[in-house]
Structures are given as structure tokens and as C-alpha cells.
């Protein structure tokens, strides 16, 4: 388990900015780290990386299938290739390359989906990635990691460099406060982070929805309801030991994600718990099976109840079941 970062200057930034800063820091010391971009270095915050380390960035242009195929070739020859592209394009247009060239051929590409979920807000459905957990969960040999805050982001990027296996890192554009300053709550891929503990209900969230989940827990506390909040940053492999412990120790479970409710983290939790014989009030929160309402990221999330108010209301509702 890694300790909480000592570099407090990175906290409170968008996770994708932290990703770029940490990657550059690591790449400066390791010339095998290569950023591969599809005209996406601006949104990926890699302009400085490209200026400072021009030999370690490969610009593909707007061609995501080729982005992933080329990254697979680089990885096969020993490069630690980070293929960086908006999550919506990376995991849809290049899905066959992810499936075959990366996962099936076991070329350890680090896929980085930026501006994920509904980060692009009113740009609409073409730019939303609400399918990525679902499609990647159905592919063998890939780890799916969705950091919640700057600390998790830093740790996830470092872990992705060390691991020589395919991984998908998913980041958003919103500035993210630290979830906790408790240094004992470390980070390890495949292990959910229990950010706060309470016995009445568990809120299992990931990515940018963990912070509103934490705010919901505070609202619930005001009403005498004690909530556990988990950052389930690794969607695959799922931390089933933690899920079992939560099911044993808490009365109800709400899952929250910036993803369609079909096939996401919530369904993964439900599938595991049901097959283990746990039956308790359970609610999957996320984007329903529809094209989203128009709005900014926060407006869209609020509209579908993925907010402190929405999550706490849902928690109270299922506690009455």
C-alpha cells in the first residue's frame, strides 16, 4: 500500500492533469515510457510532455484504431506505451484493437481514457463514454482503473508503469479534492479504498462520483445514518473480499458511477453478491439507458441523481425497504 502523496501541490487538480504530470516525471527517468496521442495532447495535458520529451511522444493524428495498433507494436518491442485519447473514442472506435492487439495478443499497452463519462457535458452523446466499463469488462486480460482523486491518480499511474499488463485508466476533467488525509488509507490496484466507515449502509462509488458519495454520507450522518464510502477504483478485477465484508457488515448497498447502469461497476458488484447468496437492499445509481439530458457534467449528473442530494435520498429510500 502506498502512502499518501507528500506533494500536496497536486491535490485539487483535474485527475487528467495529475496523470500528465506524473507520467512526465516518470518518463524523464525512463526513456521507454512513450506517450501516444491522437491529436489529443492538449486535452490530455501532454503539451509540456511533448515539448520537454519530444523523443518520447508519438503523434498519430486523429486515428484511434491506428493509435491503439501502433501502441501495441511499441509495447511488443518493450516500450511502456500510454495510448491517450478521449475515452469515448478510445473505447468505442478502437475496441477491436483493444480486444485483439492489446488484450488477446497480451501487448501491455496502458490505455488512458481522458475526459471520460459525461466530462464533455453539452457536447453530447458522441463525446460521452458511458459504455467503457461494460465493453472492457467483457474482454479478458485488462485491468480497469478509475481513480477518484489526485492521490489515487498518482498511485494508479505509477502502478501502471510497473505492471507489465494491459490496463485502462479513466480520468475526468473536473478538479478533484482529496477524499481523505488519512495516510493509512493507501492505494493498491484491485483493492477498494474504504474512505469512511459506517454500519447502516455502504456507498460504493468510483471516479468523480466518490466525492459526492462522501458528501452524501455527511448528509446521512446528520440524520443519524452511518455510511461506509468506498472508492472502488478498480472495476476489474473487482475487490470481492471487500464486497463480502461490506455485505456482512452493512445493512444496504448503493453503487454510484459515471457510467450507464447497464454493465458497469454496480452490476459487477450485484452479480458477485447475488452469487455469494447475499440478499439485501441494493441500488445501482448511474446514467439510465437513454441519451442524456443536455447540460454540463454536473447538471447531467444532478439530473440523474448522481449528487450528494440524490445519493443520500436514494440511500434513505432503500433503508426503508
Amino acid at each position: 500500500m502506498g502512502a499518501v502523496t507528500t506533494d500536496t501541490s497536486i491535490n485539487g487538480k483535474p485527475n487528467q492533469d495529475v496523470f500528465a504530470a506524473v507520467l512526465q516525471q516518470l518518463a524523464t527517468a525512463d526513456r521507454d515510457i512513450i506517450a501516444v496521442t491522437s491529436d489529443s495532447r492538449g486535452s490530455g495535458k501532454l503539451v509540456k510532455f511533448g515539448t520537454d520529451l519530444p523523443e518520447q511522444i508519438v503523434e498519430i493524428g486523429i486515428a484511434e484504431q491506428n493509435l491503439v495498433g501502433v501502441a501495441a507494436g511499441l509495447a511488443s518491442a518493450g516500450k511502456k506505451a500510454f495510448a491517450v485519447s478521449p475515452a469515448c473514442f478510445l473505447t468505442a472506435r478502437a475496441l477491436e484493437q483493444i480486444k485483439n492487439d492489446v488484450c488477446y495478443s497480451d501487448n501491455p499497452v496502458r490505455l488512458v481514457g481522458i475526459s471520460a463519462g459525461v466530462s464533455y457535458g453539452a457536447l453530447g452523446t458522441t463525446h460521452h463514454s458511458l459504455h467503457d466499463f461494460a465493453v472492457l469488462r467483457a474482454i479478458n486480460n485488462i485491468t480497469i482503473v478509475v481513480p477518484a482523486d489526485n492521490f489515487e491518480t498518482e498511485q494508479a499511474v505509477k502502478a501502471a508503469v510497473k505492471s507489465n499488463k494491459p490496463v485502462y485508466l479513466r480520468f475526468g476533467k473536473k478538479s478533484m479534492p482529496l477524499l481523505t488525509d488519512d495516510e493509512t488509507v493507501g492505494f493498491e490496484i484491485g483493492k477498494g479504498r474504504v474512505v469512511t466507515k459506517g454500519k447502516d449502509i455502504a456507498i460504493i462509488a468510483n471516479g468523480e462520483t466518490v466525492y459526492p458519495a462522501l458528501q452524501a454520507a455527511q448528509k446521512l450522518a446528520e440524520q443519524g445514518v452511518a455510511a461506509t464510502v468506498v472508492s472502488m477504483h478498480t472495476v476489474k478485477p473487482l475487490d470481492t473480499a471487500l464486497l463480502s465484508a461490506i455485505a456482512e457488515e452493512t445493512g444496504a448497498i448503493v453503487t454510484v458511477e459515471e457510467h450507464m447502469v447497464n454493465g458497469g461497476m454496480g452490476e459487477a458488484c450485484a452479480s458477485y453478491l447475488l452469487q455469494q447468496g447475499y440478499q439485501k437492499p441494493f441500488k445501482i445509481m448511474g446514467i439510465p439507458d437513454e441519451y442524456t439530458v443536455t447540460g454540463s457534467q454536473v447538471e447531467i449528473l444532478n439530473h440523474y441523481g448522481v449528487s450528494a442530494d440524490g445519493i443520500s435520498a436514494e440511500a434513505l429510500k432503500i433503508l426503508k425497504q
Binding site: 508519438v58 484504431q65 491506428n66 491503439v68 495498433g69 501502433v70 501502441a71 501495441a72 507494436g73 511499441l74 509495447a75 511488443s76 518491442a77 518493450g78 516500450k79 506505451a81 477491436e96 484493437q97 485483439n100 492487439d101 495478443s105 501487448n107
Partner: peptide, 13 residues
């Protein structure tokens, strides 16, 4: 349509 992109990445390396 997969061989050439991978070949290009390998050649780049």
C-alpha cells in the same frame, strides 16, 4: 486491418 498498425508501432520502436 490489424497487422500494419502493429508493424508500424514495432518499426517505430
Amino acid at each position: 486491418g490489424h497487422g500494419l498498425p502493429i508493424a508500424v508501432g514495432t518499426a517505430l520502436a
